[in-house]
Design a protein around this nucleic acid. Sequence first.
RNA 1: GAGGGUGUAGCUCAGCUGGUAGAGCAGUGGACUGUGGAUCCACGGGUCGCGGGUUCGAGUCCCGUCACCCUCCCCA
Length: 404
Amino acid sequence: MSDEIRSVRGFHDILGNDLKKFRRITNVVRRILKLYNFEEIILPVVEYAELFQRSIGEVTDIVQKEMFTFQDKKGRWLALRPEGTAGTVRAYIQHRMYAERPYRKLFYEGPMFRYERPQAGRYRQFHQIGAEIFGVGDPEADFEIIEIVYKILKELNITVVIEINSLGCLKCRPAYREELVTFLNEVEENLCEVCKERKDKNPLRVLDCKVETCRETFKSSPKVIDYLCEECKEHFERLQSFLNSSDIPYRINPSLVRGLDYYSRTVFEAVSDDLSTTIIAGGRYDYLVEQLGGPPTPATGFAVGIERTALLLPDVEEDVESYIVIPFGEVKEYAMKVADILRSKGYTVEFSYRRGGLRKQLEYADKMGFRYAVIIGEDEMKEGKVTLKDMREGVQVTKNIEEL
RNA sequence: GAGGGUGUAGCUCAGCUGGUAGAGCAGUGGACUGUGGAUCCACGGGUCGCGGGUUCGAGUCCCGUCACCCUCCCCA
């Protein structure tokens, strides 16, 4: 036992009930994305580290402290992807997708990697499923993304609040940023230690602080939405008008900012009240494609944190209508044939390897939750029949092999 | 990167001021040779996370270390 090899810290196996929840989430998301005609792309797990430095932002924690980076044999810096958007944009550019159609809707699913301390719903290898719309600058696209997020949560029966905000664009954000820094310097003594640190590094992030005294202080801080230029203001208002004419509940959170540098204009988060954590988030990133070497292309998208969402799902006991074939006596060949006949009709069938008498066999069938036990003894074999027992109802019938 | 908690049987856990390791559940077999969800009996199973120290003697005390869980930071 002492020399047993365990999985690497923060890298976990997903099995049993956790896997059921995992699949439930991805199935729901995939089905909804299909309704909106998104197409899947499978992206590599490894990219050049530079891709993330140039997209997520050099000064973000993700890039500075949380990325798994390493050198290949030729000394190039590679990284395990910490998120999916950068790779999707890279692929969009690399395959010249911008030249094929006026716009493109893509989705991806897979493991992401961040080097951080594991805790509830958070691992070093975690999984996201996300979608992006390239080439649409209009708020319709933002609305579609938020609508999809809402449908996902509704279908999964998860109660969350969708918070939205606008971060403005390159025209209006710098002015706001300056105002904010001025304000933060004035109230510096009221800020927590972390905020004092962050104020110079990434001032927008300060607004995200959860410390009560900070929140109180920020009530009088300048708000991004008051500094939006005409175009950004109109964009944000039209998004709200789409939302208002839908049944999607939302609220504006003027302090909502996101931790990745590439966002512009619309940002949103689906925040769980009982978990007090974000499970789905996203927003618009109109400069990223160009920043990574493509033509100017507006884009917007979202990502679902699968493990985190799974925490909000109840344990599900699904009734699988599966069969167990119980051979009793010298009937193995016959019993295997019966099992295969059932499989050819599409049933899930386990051939029992459990040793022991019929009693033990039925105990096993009961414990494992099989709906039907197909009992096959020498009597049944002689007559070309089987005994089919309904484990739930406790009744059994004898059937000819052809009647299965 | 900072802080807190926990490591004893497959699982959940007890084990007092140091004195040879325990329960429940699960497993296997039997009571019961072709009928489960119940009962009873028996059996197997542990370098007490790892390393060192104190001691005649350490699961228990001390030091170190690792892992897991949780919180902060950060983020989905």
